[in-house]
Design a protein around this nucleic acid. Structure first.
Lengths: 342, 342
DNA sequence: GGCGGTTTTGGGAGCGCTCCCAAAATCGCC
DNA sequence: GGCGATTTTGGGAGCGCTCCCAAAACCGCC
């Protein structure tokens, strides 16, 4: 049975303003009054009405996660549950709620953007998985709603949290080079996305730093799905790479399938390195050498930056890059079952 | 720049009541007035303020998903992202928002329950993954907040949506029996959960229907994690089963690891059947024969039942059981790579 | 006790919407 | 045109909270 603040005031023998001051931790309430009010609150199990608070304060304590792409192609990527886990924990720790907004197609997008961004429902949003031409970020800038992008963004005004995709990819390719490989292919992420581009850039940098010429025939674009990885690998195999850096673990699973279907062995005929260190990396056979990105920490950091933007009204955009780490397994450079870090 | 309903009324030359009647599709507005108001709304990009509507109507258009267990042990199970995907799409289709409430431990649980259930934030909740002794469902009944359980529940007053765990498990074990197996083990889910119990019941029923005695030494309880599955399988192997029904794909991955670590072959030495048909079922080697449960449809159905409870004020609890389907792969009864349905 | 300064308290009003009921307008019939 | 019935419209008030400012209370000093 819901109680109102006025009822608590009556039960405690004070005014509604005093009750408000108590629950919002304002000064200028005598300690014995404060304690009396808290006692009534505890006995009654009073919980303030969220909408009333929101209408009065213009704050909701709710953060949104917006994933603009079609859920059938992206949300089944295990990256997102881990991101959400990190975000949910950070929200809980700061007494915020997390609301999911997943878009299922372009047809309803404008209507859903308007509903989500303009109804006063959210204090701010975390945006994940935008393409470079997605209208969402200009829209958010226009609405003046605080937001943080998960993934690097070109606009200086955009706060973002990302991992060091360039350095991570470079590390992966350097590992292949140290293993003696010179004919190294890559399955990129979508080049319409910044992560896709950055991981390709790391691949290039590693080759060029060792004076290995970059061969466009050894570059095939994937779409971050397992099937896309398999098809991209099929396009690369006629060019006889001895190794491949695949820009996500999910695509690496597909690439490994293509290699095996061609009757080739991993790592003897084609060594494979992925990117993410999803749980599937240790389930496939041979277990996948990959670049670990701290996905949960990415989500948690995005939430913390966003809360900072909301509560401090900070003007300066923040750019945070988290480190990656190479995890060596059997697909390249380790004995079966071992778990080496570099 | 947010506009108020009063501003729209001024611009359209009508009262606030007329604007309210227009946006809420009430009768008794002249068509030309209605069109004039919509034109102003479109030009201005007006979106009603959610908190104000909520305060006036006692409705939020927000549904919660509550997963009471610690996220570090359950949310990484791929069952949940698929459930969420189905829910999110159903919410979008009905113009509701989906809010996630993940609990990170028992210490903050009471506080978070109170905040989530008593602040007027949610119109209703979907509850997933409760144990039989979890206080959440009695709490929800007490609060009178509409809710739907994902997973069968013993209380007749509880609406739920589930798959036919008993029949699915029976189907899996019947498949093993048809393959000639008689020494069939099982890794159960947690027996504190209804799904854990129902899948064990299906295992029992299939054996008893063929006059095969149930041997308790061939039953080991797991906890729905990969590691739990591996350890349960290690306990079963000394009893020399020729086949095993594992109550989830995630645990089956662990069981397969234990079998291989013991130097045994799948399916020649030990045949394996899982439950879920998660994506990992076709990634492991050999690919896993498993019982497919329509997880997305489970989520979508739960949302639809819940919206029905909220909007129709239905008094009668609903119990919906979705069918399962056996998917035959190489871990038991199929040639490598084929995808047979039965 | 009186005074000035500071702390504490209470009540009005506003946040942006919905609903109710009385007033105004319209309609159809005679 | 008048009448009764029906439709349309507008303004007050309420939803539950926060904030502001005036009033009341308290404190310390002379």
């Amino acid at each position: 049975m819901a109680h109102t603040l006025e009822e608590i005031a009556k039960l405690a023998g004070v005014s509604r303003s005093t009750v408000s001051r108590v629950i919002n931790d304002h000064p200028n309430v005598r300690p014995e009054v404060r304690e009396r009010v808290w006692q009534v609150i505890r006995e009654v199990g009073y919980q303030p009405h969220a909408a009333a608070r929101s209408l009065a304060t213009n704050r909701t304590q709710v953060l949104g996660l917006i994933i603009p792409q079609a859920v059938t192609t992206l949300f089944t990527d295990p990256f997102f549950p881990h991101l959400i886990q990190g975000m949910a924990e950070a929200c809980n720790a700061h007494r915020y709620h997390l609301m999911l907004s997943l878009f299922t197609g372009r047809t309803d997008q404008e209507s859903l953007y308007r509903r989500v961004l303009r109804s006063g429902t959210l204090d701010g949003v975390v945006v994940a998985s935008t393409t470079l031409d997605d209208p969402l970020i200009p829209r958010l800038l226009q609405e003046k709603l605080p937001f943080v992008s998960v993934g690097r963004h070109r606009e200086a005004a955009v706060s973002y949290v990302d991992v060091d995709n360039v350095a991570g990819a470079r590390q992966a390719v350097e590992h292949l080079l140290r293993q003696g490989h010179r004919r190294i292919a890559t399955v990129t992420g979508p080049l319409a996305m910044m992560a896709g581009r950055d991981r390709l850039e790391g691949y290039r940098q590693a080759l060029e730093a060792r004076g290995v010429p970059v061969d466009d025939a050894l570059i095939a674009e994937g779409d971050f799905t397992e099937e896309g990885g398999r098809m991209a690998m099929q396009r690369l195999l006629p060019h006889r790479p001895t190794a491949v850096f695949v820009a996500s673990d999910t695509m690496a699973v597909g690439a490994m399938k293509a290699i095996k279907e061609a009757g080739l062995r991993i790592p003897e005929d084609v060594a494979v390195v992925g990117f993410d260190d999803l749980p599937v990396a240790s389930i496939v056979e041979p277990a996948l050498t990959t670049v670990r990105q701290p996905i949960e920490r990415l989500g948690a950091t995005a939430v913390e930056v966003l809360i900072g933007l909301i509560e401090q009204q900070a003007e300066a955009p923040q750019h945070i890059i988290l480190p990656t780490q190479l995890v060596i397994r059997a697909s390249c450079g380790a004995l079966s079952g071992s778990r080496g870090l570099e």
